[in-house]
Amino acid sequence: MATHNLTTPLTDEVVMTLKSGDMVFLTGTIYTARDAAHKRLIEALDAGSPLPFEIKGALIYYVGPSPAPPGRPIGSCGPTTSYRMDTFAPRLHALGLKASIGKGKRSDEVKAAMQKYKAVYLGATGGAGALLSQCVTEAKVIAYEELGPEAIRELTVEKFPLLVINDAYGGELYTTPRLDLAGYE
C-alpha cells in the first residue's frame, strides 16, 4: 500500500493513482459540507444557481466543526458519518467532485458514481477531532453562515492524514463483517 502526498485540486490522473488502502497526506484547500449544506447545494443546482465554490477537482469534507477557541483557526474537526450524504454525492461527482472525506460505508450508487466519474472516498479517523484540527491552518465560512456548524467552510489543510476507502476501480478498504465466524449466515 502506497503513501501519497497530494495537493488540491485533484485531477483525474492523480485520482487514478489511488488504490483502496493507500495513505494520503493532503495539502491545500478543501470544503466542509454536511447534511443541511448538501441540501442547499442541491437546491442551488435545481434552481440553476452557481455553487459557492468550484466543484471541478474539489474535495468535500463531511464535518461540522466545533467553535474555534481564541487563537485557533478551528475547533475539533473530525469526520461525520458519510451515508447521510449518499443521496447527494453522485450528482456532485458528475459535476467534477473528485473526493469526499468522511467515515463509514457508502451506497452502491455512490461507489458506481466514483467509478464512472473518476473519484475517491477518503476516510479520516472518527473521534480524533482535536488531533485532526492540528492539520488545519486556516478556516473561513464561505456560504450558508446561518447554518452554524453546518455552514460551508473553506479549510486550508497541511498533511491532513487520510486513508483511501473506496477507489475509482471499485476497490474498498472496509472489511465485510464476518457473520459466519460469529455463527450466523
Binding site: 466545533s66 488531533l131 484540527s133 492540528q134
Partner: peptide, 28 residues
C-alpha cells in the same frame, strides 16, 4: 497495522484534548 494506528491516534487525540481544551470530538 491500521487498527493499531487508529488506537495510536485516539490516544494522541485524548492527550491533545486534555492539554488544549479542544473537545475530544467535534460532535459534542
Amino acid at each position: 497495522g491500521a487498527a493499531k494506528e487508529v488506537f495510536r491516534q485516539l490516544l494522541e487525540n485524548a492527550k491533545l484534548s486534555e492539554e488544549t481544551g479542544l473537545p475530544l470530538c467535534q460532535d459534542c
